[in-house]
Design a protein around this nucleic acid. Structure first.
Length: 825
RNA sequence: GCCUGGGUGGCGGAAUAGGUAGACGCAAGGGACUUAAAAUCCCUCGGUCCUCGCGGCUGUACGAGUUCGAUUCUCGUCCUAGGCACCA
């Protein structure tokens, strides 16, 4: 018998796949397409176990779908722009481009060594000019449509990364990448108008049944849609002061207003009054508190009275106007109405400043005494003190009050979003240059399409200092204005790297197309991605940006699909010793080491078997050994009798009626069914478990030592089935074993086995007997037996008789072929 | 505080539509083979009680409920992970 030598086998098989270009695909109208994609990696140097897991899952699905006859697009590429390349450049004096490409070369080899089947002719590296030139092209199209604009605003800035961060990239006041505390800085930035799509992005969350509930809820949470009304309060001089509220049912309980420090009225209301000095001192102080500080929990609510009053349009009551540090200028109108009786924040503020409470909603079965309240009543109830709305349920009153306000011209219904526009300017070098030129005379001038690409110079010296190297490269930024020809300056900021990953999955469909970003025919054949697989950490950032970008490209007429990813699978992290694998924790397992010790098939198998894809995977060295042992067991099963099986015809149905045969035949068909259905729903761990069971059953059959030809035929059928079912998981060993038994020239991987429903059902079934729901006995009977006959057998059981004796039988419940429950007293 | 998930043996995890809880694997214990070891193979393996039987009781975070029957459905409680968090 040949020994199982994974390295030799794997190298040989991989070379053959490469030679035959096995995974290369093109559009084919005769087959159903299936676009399978895993999130592409950042080329950090080497792949880690998270990648191995992600891509192993993907490879199973890709190979399975191919066996099922789909035309499977399964590409791979590199999210190649980003800061680590610059840091490496600074630390080691190596060009970011060189560093990145060396990493890509190494990691590509690693992926190939794991045996993942990609169409490498479609490989993309986002740092290649042929990729980012089309991103610049898209930028210009977006600019024409007003989807890109420039504005000065306070931005999140990471002092360590020395660049701006989008709101989504700030996690609890810290940089998402390096965890440095984020500060506020006033900068002029480019923005993508993602808020124009906020409503649609929100609503479509309900039309993505193939996405995990969790991700959709995170996206909805982030977009933060809320229905309310804008109401015009009036200053005493008649000028309007508009607020936004989601609780118009509390409008009659407003006792004061609060403005954000940045509100245009904040600086002027107190002018010339005794309050002026205090107000300005407060505003200065509040503005100095940067965003991250303001975001801290338990920040004390502070405020100052402006000395001015406004009129509540519903009640004509005069109410004082305050400025408060807790009101955000960026949401709603930057001014709020305060209802201390029904909003906890307002309640606290009112207590501090000794402001009155007016109750407008009471619990259905009680009353509220403003003087006795220790917290705001935020729940639903019945309207009181509310003009014509008294007596209504507050929920029902809300739309009526909005109608009333609109009728009287006091305001209008409004939907607000938490989502902000996406700031994409980064003061970094290793990214896509923003294709814009600033001219003293003509202002902002987009680079003409014929001048694209704006190429990122590769021969720059990267220094530590704050400024982007591009801003110091005169050859780069000194240009002539495309409009008037006068000397002008090129934009030296680059784009956020999330821009590249927002459309790479579309470019895979036509990576060499040179007349535009997308070849409409090809992209419409493949898009949308049928199955996307990646880490849940991208639930908001990457996935939301991609949904936005896909819509923009759709609106630009570049493609037909509206949503980018039909189905999404978010895989869990790889955990070891209780925490995520990381260098700092010193608990990383190196894929190279695993491949060297056990081979790629074992590494893949363990990642797939140890836990279902969505869950975190607990690393276990012993578990890896177990996977290796299983493969050796399979190897022996086949290799030990490879010669004996030569020339034997494989049967999946028993030629003999003896129970050994029948049992094995049934097991084969049941396993095919189970594995098929499990792969379809991504229960890859249980799919493997059931293949293991088939292997165990096959060994048991062998122990019977049946020598007839029929036994060999069925055995061969079982073995062929094991190999075919294993192929998507561990393709190298499967192919090798397939080659060892003579299989009539059939090609492994070309088709998926089918089960015969007749053999899925056992001829004899074990029926368990319960008495009053408690398990008492069981017996084996013919399948689909007549109820009367079954009852006769059951009640004839000695044990059951003993239990039933002396009781009154109320009823007998029969679950066919499974269970009988006798209810008695 | 709000919104999602999730709590099952010593461990990773099964149980697809309410019907035998613990598949498969790991670890552990016992045995076979061997001069010995490795490898391999076989047996045991939730808890508990006894009269050690193809025995009884109990058991899927906890407490109720629906049901002939609940890991599964409903309500409440606790714990835990993730997301959002002065968003008016």
């Amino acid at each position: 018998m040949k020994l199982y030598e994974p390295h030799e086998i794997e190298e040989r098989r991989q070379a053959a796949w490469e030679k035959d270009q096995l995974f290369r695909v093109s559009e084919d109208g005769t087959k159903e397409k299936y676009y399978l994609l895993e999130m592409f990696p950042y080329p950090s140097g080497r792949i880690h176990m998270g990648h191995v897991r992600n891509y192993s899952i993907g490879d199973v699905i890709a190979r399975y779908k191919r066996m099922k006859g789909f035309n499977v697009l399964h590409p791979m590429g590199w999210d190649a722009f980003g800061m680590p390349a610059e840091n490496a450049a600074i630390e080691r004096g190596i060009q970011p481009a060189t560093w990145t490409h060396e990493n890509i070369d190494y990691m590509r080899k690693q992926l190939k060594r794991l045996g993942f089947g990609y169409d490498w002719t479609r490989e993309i590296a986002t740092c290649d000019v042929e990729y980012y030139r089309w991103e610049q092209w898209i930028f210009l199209k977006m600019f024409e449509r007003g989807l890109v604009y420039r504005k000065s605003s306070p931005v999140n800035y990471c002092p360590k990364c020395q660049t701006v961060l989008a709101n989504e990239q700030v996690e609890g006041g810290a940089c998402w990448r390096c965890s440095e505390e984020v500060i506020q800085k006033e900068l002029t930035q480019w923005f993508f108008a993602i808020t124009q799509y906020a409503d649609e992005l929100y609503d479509y969350c309900d039309r993505l049944p193939g996405w995990p509930e969790k991700v959709l809820s995170m996206q909805k949470n982030w977009i933060g849609k809320s229905y309310g009304v804008e109401v015009d309060f009036r200053l005493e001089d008649g000028s309007p002061l508009t607020i936004f509220t989601t609780r118009p049912d509390t409008l009659y309980g407003v006792t004061f207003m609060v403005l954000a420090p940045e509100h245009p009225f904040s600086g002027v209301l107190a002018l010339g009054t005794p309050y002026e000095h205090d107000v300005h001192a407060f505003i200065d102080r509040a503005k100095a508190q940067d965003r991250s500080f303001r975001a801290e929990t338990e920040i004390k609510k502070e405020g100052v009275f402006t000395g001015k009053y406004a009129i509540n349009p519903l009640t004509d009551t005069k109410i004082p106007i305050y400025i408060g540090n807790f009101v955000l200028m960026g949401y709603g109108t930057g001014a709020i109405m305060s209802v201390p009786a029904h909003d906890q924040r307002d309640f606290e503020f009112a207590k501090t400043f000794d402001l009155p409470l007016i109750v407008t909603i009471v619990p259905e079965d009680g009353a509220l005494d403003p003087a006795a309240m220790t917290e705001a009543y935020e729940a639903d109830g019945i309207m009181v003190n509310s003009g014509t709305f008294v007596g209504m349920k507050n929920r029902e009153a809300i739309p009526k009050i909005i109608d009333f306000i609109e009728e009287k011209g006091m305001g209008k219904g409004k939907v607000n979003f938490r989502l902000r526009d996406w700031g994409i300017s980064r003061q970094r070098y290793w990214g896509t240059p923003i294709p814009v030129i600033y001219c003293d005379d003509c202002g902002i001038v987009p680079v003409p399409y014929e001048d694209l690409p704006v190429v990122l110079p590769l021969d720059l010296e990267i220094k530590v200092v704050g400024k982007s190297p591009l801003a110091e490269c005169a050859e780069f930024y000194n240009v002539h204005c495309p409009k008037c020809g006068k000397p002008a300056k090129r934009e030296t900021d680059t784009m956020d790297t999330f821009v590249e990953s927002s459309w790479y999955f579309l470019r895979y469909t036509c990576p060499q197309y040179d007349e535009g970003p997308l070849d409409r025919k090809k992209v419409d054949y493949w898009a949308p991605v049928d199955q996307y697989i990646g880490g849940v950490e991208h639930a908001v950032l990457h996935l939301l940006y991609s949904r936005f970008f896909n819509r923009v490209l759709n609106d630009l007429g570049l493609m037909g699909a509206r949503e980018p990813f039909k189905n999404l699978l978010t895989q869990g992290m790889v955990i070891k010793d209780g925490s995520k694998m990381s260098k700092s924790k010193g608990n990383v397992v190196d894929p190279d080491y695993l491949i060297e010790k056990y081979g790629a098939d074992t590494a893949r198998l363990f990642c797939l078997f140890a836990s279902p894809p969505e869950k975190d995977l607990d690393w276990s060295d012993k578990g890896v050994e177990g996977s290796f042992r299983f493969l050796q067991r399979v190897w022996r099963l086949v290799a030990d009798r490879a010669e004996a099986l030569q020339g034997v015809e494989a049967y999946l149905v028993p030629e003999e009626r003896e129970s050994d045969y029948i049992q094995l035949a049934h097991k084969i068909h049941k396993t095919i069914k189970k594995v098929t259905e499990d792969i379809e729903r991504f229960h890859l761990n249980t799919a493997i478990a059931s293949i293991m069971e088939l292997v165990n059953t096959t060994y048991k059959f062998i122990e019977m030592e049946r020598k007839e030809k029929a036994a060999l035929s069925l055995l061969k059928g079982a073995i062929e089935t094991v190999i075919m079912l294993l192929f998507p998981f561990v393709p190298h060993i499967a192919e090798e074993l397939w080659g060892q038994i003579e299989t009539g020239g059939r090609l492994l991987g070309a088709y998926w086995p089918v089960w015969d429903e007749a053999y899925v059902k056992d001829e004899k079934v074990m029926v368990v007997v319960q008495i009053n729901g408690k398990l008492r006995d069981s017996c084996e009977v013919e399948r689909d037996m007549e109820e009367a006959q079954l009852k006769e057998i059951i009640f004839g059981l000695e044990k059951i008789q003993r239990y039933v004796e002396g009781t009154e039988i109320i009823k007998t419940i029969i679950v066919p072929n499974k269970l009988v429950n006798i209810v008695c007293r």
